[in-house]
Design a protein around this nucleic acid. Sequence first.
DNA 1: AATTAGCACTCGGATAGAAAGAGTGCTAGC
DNA 2: GCTAGCACTCTTTCTATCCGAGTGCTAATT
Lengths: 366, 366
Amino acid sequence: MELSERKKRILTAVVEGYIATAEPVGSKALAQTIGCSSATIRNEMSELTAMGYLEQPHTSAGRVPSPAGYRLYVNELMEKQKLSEAETAAINEKLARKDEQIEKLMAEVGQLTSSMTQYPAYALTMKPPVAVKRFDFIYVDANTFIVVALLTDNTVKNKLIHLPFSVHQEQITTLSSLFNANFTGVTDREITDSIIRSTERAAGDTYGLVAVVASFTMECLAAARTAPLRVAGQSRLLDQPEFRDPDKAHALMSFISEGSHLMDDLPPAGMGTDGVRVTIGPENMAEELKDSSVVMASYDAGDGMRGYIGVVGPTRMDYSGVAAKLSYIAAGLSRMLAGTDAPRGLDNKLVLKESGHYEQEGREEE
Amino acid sequence: MELSERKKRILTAVVEGYIATAEPVGSKALAQTIGCSSATIRNEMSELTAMGYLEQPHTSAGRVPSPAGYRLYVNELMEKQKLSEAETAAINEKLARKDEQIEKLMAEVGQLTSSMTQYPAYALTMKPPVAVKRFDFIYVDANTFIVVALLTDNTVKNKLIHLPFSVHQEQITTLSSLFNANFTGVTDREITDSIIRSTERAAGDTYGLVAVVASFTMECLAAARTAPLRVAGQSRLLDQPEFRDPDKAHALMSFISEGSHLMDDLPPAGMGTDGVRVTIGPENMAEELKDSSVVMASYDAGDGMRGYIGVVGPTRMDYSGVAAKLSYIAAGLSRMLAGTDAPRGLDNKLVLKESGHYEQEGREEE
DNA sequence: AATTAGCACTCGGATAGAAAGAGTGCTAGC
DNA sequence: GCTAGCACTCTTTCTATCCGAGTGCTAATT
């Protein structure tokens, strides 16, 4: 059922009022804003309550949005908020350094997101399965060599291997060609014991050298797949009135820093390729998040990787502002990381301001 | 001035009572424990108060230890606590996996420390300046090569370099010998512009290749020196009654997660080579820590590196238990990391239990 | 001289009751 | 269909009071 225009305005006002003050919103306060008397508002509000969009903490308090109310607000009512000059400038400046390691970059993106939104933030990158493109073995001395593996995602892993016995340069070279023949182009799941054993036979390896290098390889591949999750600004949770109760805060904070659980909720629910997804209170799978909301945005991290940034906060969250900021940061990251080389700087600033949309309108606008 | 035996017992009882209950300790409660009447205790307590070892939150509350009282307790009165079988077993099990990357190991040590002590914990490793031992350049294709640098601390760093122009295998080889000649054995501070420029001339490099690799080198060396600091279990702070006030908790938590500041306090104040250091309330330099205490232990991380683990908590902290646990974990780490190869497992368990000392009695007991 | 018992005093924390205030729902009139 | 008015509900806040734990002091006891 479609709501009347006035109901929409009232619902919007309640949501935004509650977001701003964290106090239930009464009819009197809205009378001027809406432009009719408080009694009318009361009638409308009681209908909205019956429809399930508003709730009353107790008989004589103002109204508070229900999860359904937030959902409606997010889906239809919310103003697509624009960022101020100052905000876009701050984000651009922070993102301006392309040459960081991806690890460090993620840590900084988490902090940036958290400081822009004033909520705890997380950032992670999901990588597709990778394989080794090529191996190189560097002979250091009779007891030492280095394995260097170039992965399909163009990262390089290495390991210094120290042996309790000596090897010749030639043995290393043999090993190198065997590994390049047998262990390239396969994902970690495809490395079986039988491959390892046959390689061992081919190398005439009696010392378990092959096994050591093979396990290093598998480690690399596994590590490259698992996303390192960064969490920043957890303690900002304590700024929110709903987490003045240390027990609540504690529960959510330790859930957040666990990290791994957060990820469980992420991939399944779809979101537009570059959109923003909002999960409100009970919509969250995890029990610990039933009273909280999660806003997340995804970005293209290049090389087929997809990255996610998000924030966690009370259901009474500034969805509009947060969504705008996340979207902008995500867009910036996409530009930065997906542009194969020589990124065009962060001139998507203009694009975003024109579209003024928290859902980035695809990247063909470049 | 030396305190009478009974005063010591009273002070000890007050400190331990307050640690246990977080409530001021009154004279009546101590009467049985000490074995004389409450009036006597009151007399003694008022003297201890005059001496500055105890404080009264208000006229008619029990006594609470002052920082000086804690200090005396830590220095002289504290029972050197032994760990239970279960605790040593838990620690040993966690530490049993030597083959982790040092990065991950540190993260886990932080979590272990935090979960054993129930306070937020941090872990870091201080490295001495390092240099590059040798460079290897791996030619991948006309536009790509990999630089591999073996550092003096036996870690290996690498970087994939993608060029907007093509190079020949031979150019890479030349580059390799130049770098091995000019950039090995020097710390990051010793790499000057003039060295870079002379290398550039020698290489006939017009594309800034040398500069790219040189800056990579400096990054590696700098990164190897700066200690990555890990913080774990921040939210446990909220378990402590003194941090029920979210504002206080927030202030301290964000200070802790900043991390960098924590380090400032560390190295100067000496501690026994393998000892435990306790810094109580106002003894801390940082303003944010004036109401908190820090207990830290250091360990030998091998290769001349020194590591630190520590916990942060209220001044009312279980110093004895925390010190014992930190010391045990630190000793375990020393064994594990400093033993050049084939660590002896964690059989120092026995040593520690025999000495029963929170300060590890040197390592010559091995 | 040290210890103990007794007692008056102090101060914070808990409890209960009253008052205030905000907001609702309903009814009647415009 | 909107608004004004009013009685009612329920929370929050304030205040006054009480209670008790603990102190400091004095006098008696060992």
